[in-house]
């Protein structure tokens, strides 16, 4: 703790980076173009990698740098490239579809973020002397990602929402268990890779069958 109840410079920096990740999540919710959504996901993943690097230098645990490099390679370059190629191939819609207007979905997300904040903040978890704020922000990121997946009715936004949810989980795991064995962290990353493949296939199949990326057509299949 610094003077006047302010967190230390490291804590403040880590908190701020986490808040930037949260803001990127809100920006994803706001952006309608699928392309810009994927770009925002890449930017968000980059910020998470920066967080890993900052923690690596703060903790002298340099294996986190390997993790940062891996997540840059995978989440900043590979996943966005695969996703944008899928969208370009589908060629059907440029913009995603939402069931709510921008302002209402932002308000709902704000309420959900507040819930995430308080739900996690009340647990009072403390790790490595880092402030509980980061965990609370991670909770908010996950909640907003859920809102993104819920209010959007196109496959691409929903999968981007799922991937960015993984970013929220990464933030939490980086802070709580920075000393976690590298192999586990890498395993998480490869989980994500599996998810990308699964979602890629799903998007292809859905587009081939429905001729669009919107999931609202699927509702018609109800028996």
């Amino acid at each position: 703790m610094g003077p006047d109840g302010a967190p230390s410079v490291l804590n403040g920096t880590v908190d701020t980076i986490a808040v930037v990740v949260l803001l990127a999540e809100f920006a994803m919710l706001r952006s309608t173009l699928l392309r810009s959504q994927i770009r925002l996901y890449a930017a968000q993943s980059f910020v998470v990698a920066v967080l890993a690097a900052v923690l690596a230098f703060a903790d002298n645990s340099y294996e986190l740098l390997i993790l940062a490099a891996l997540s840059i390679g995978l989440k900043v370059i590979a996943v966005p490239v695969v996703m944008s190629r899928t969208v370009r191939r589908a060629g059907a819609d440029v913009a995603g579809a939402g069931s709510l207007r921008a302002a209402s979905s932002a308000l709902i997300a704000l309420v959900a973020a507040g819930f995430g904040f308080f739900a996690v903040g009340r647990l009072g978890l403390q790790a490595h002397g880092l402030s509980p704020t980061v965990l609370a922000v991670a909770g908010a990121i996950i909640m907003v990602a859920f809102v993104l997946m819920t209010v959007r009715t196109d496959v691409v936004s929903q999968s981007v929402g799922f991937f960015s949810l993984e970013n929220g989980v990464s933030v939490a795991s980086l802070v709580v268990a920075a000393g976690m064995p590298l192999i586990l962290e890498v395993a998480f990353l490869f989980d994500l890779l599996v998810a990308v493949v699964v979602f890629g296939v799903l998007i292809r199949v859905h587009h081939a069958e429905q001729g669009s990326l919107s999931t609202s057509d699927i509702t018609a299949l109800r028996g």
Binding site: G5, P7, N11, D15, V19, L22, L23, L110, A113, G114, F117, F118, G121, S131, P132, T133, A136, V137, A140
Partner: peptide
């Protein structure tokens, strides 16, 4: 502004 108040309210932020 709301996120600012939220991060503060939890202490620390």
């Amino acid at each position: 502004a709301v996120i600012a108040v939220l991060t503060l309210y939890l202490g620390g932020g």
